[in-house]
Design a binder for these strands. Sequence first.
DNA 1: CGGCCTGTTGATGCGACTCAATTCAGGTGG
DNA 2: CCACCTGAATTGAGTCGCATCAACAGGCCG
Lengths: 233, 233
Amino acid sequence: MEPSIDKGKILQGIYLFTGIRETDLQALAQMAVSRNFPRQGVIFWEGKEAQGFHILVKGLVKLVKSSPDGKEFILRLVMPGETFGEAAVFAEIAYPATAVALEDSQTLFFPKAPFLQYLAASPALARNMLATLSKLMYHLTRQLEDLSLKEVSARLARYVLERCKETHGRIAPGLAVELPTTKTHLAAYLGTISETLSRTLARFKSLGMIEVDKGKITITDPAALQDIARGGK
Amino acid sequence: MEPSIDKGKILQGIYLFTGIRETDLQALAQMAVSRNFPRQGVIFWEGKEAQGFHILVKGLVKLVKSSPDGKEFILRLVMPGETFGEAAVFAEIAYPATAVALEDSQTLFFPKAPFLQYLAASPALARNMLATLSKLMYHLTRQLEDLSLKEVSARLARYVLERCKETHGRIAPGLAVELPTTKTHLAAYLGTISETLSRTLARFKSLGMIEVDKGKITITDPAALQDIARGGK
DNA sequence: CGGCCTGTTGATGCGACTCAATTCAGGTGG
DNA sequence: CCACCTGAATTGAGTCGCATCAACAGGCCG
């Protein structure tokens, strides 16, 4: 068994719980269950009736849709501190995707019933949850826009720029973005396959727009990237 | 000016407000503003700071993403009784898509600030809103799955089957689904263009899977459709 | 009647997926 | 420590789905 962790402590840093009173945090910590998953372990399956949602404490999780013939699309890579599986808790629907741990991971699991009960008593929590879902919806519509209107090069360019903005707060030559995992996963996230991603990266590099090195992409020509992200060429 | 409508009456039939007390409904009706839009009128623009959300009372509305070069993707067709523009209200984000009336339409508009204030006092309303957002997210992930993993024929087959199930509660030979609007719009909704949709419909017809007639599709071979929707052939 | 929008059908080209071969890095076990 | 294996990444050749461009038919409305 895990050495007992301070669940209340963990909750303090989570966006979902900002502005929640200390005593309420303790109540929430009470209902949370710490769970561990090995690399490649399935946290929940698409189509399974939702029993609650998770907060990722440590590790890395992918949310995937997969097709009968083995292709898969990564809806989201979940980083520590983020929640996942929330949506299925509030409507009578099943998990819309499968969650798989990409590294040994630890989560806090909130069972549906007690959480909903608590939610009814906490407007601040409800408000935070609405904001969380809203941001996820925003993200999903962005992905839809990319998939339906843009080609792979534009999606990749946008991805690199957004990650750069996210990690450094700005976009400038010389700044680098870390790939959270393998290029194959990135390909699945961008709605393509590793071969195509490899070629596209090679083309960007040959055009002097980026440098690629060991799971790290360095931006050398932001303007050109932005042009491509908009759909240019 | 419109002859004054009974806003309270309208709210009663809306999913978002089920289980809300009568007196609360009156308060909500107070804050709602009736607005009218002509065919082709823009209700809000993508990127504009959200000021509130709408309930469609009458008419038809499309939520679209459009690219610089004129292509557009329809995220959702909004039918009377449904809400739209909700997501942007709860996080500090802009409207993620543009809303356009496809027919002369009437909405009830709920301004952000008073609605949020009211929401804090009504757990039932918060709960309903969470459920609404959850269902929309489910829908978005379905679309993402289709776009990333399936080809046009599979998307069309799935669309026809789902609409059939929705309108008749079951799927059987002889049942028909109405197209809400033009085939060009349906194409944009399926992430393709009208030419490709036309060809695909023609192929389905020649294979004896459907009959097409005047904005109506009649299913003749459900099994074959289901096979294609799963990715077969 | 003459525009306009929608829908259909044909020919062509391009982007990206498929299949296949090779290299490379990391981890394992002898 | 090296041989081995596995998964990731890269590169090439071939194919396919679908968008593009273009021409044309039908319905609706002013």
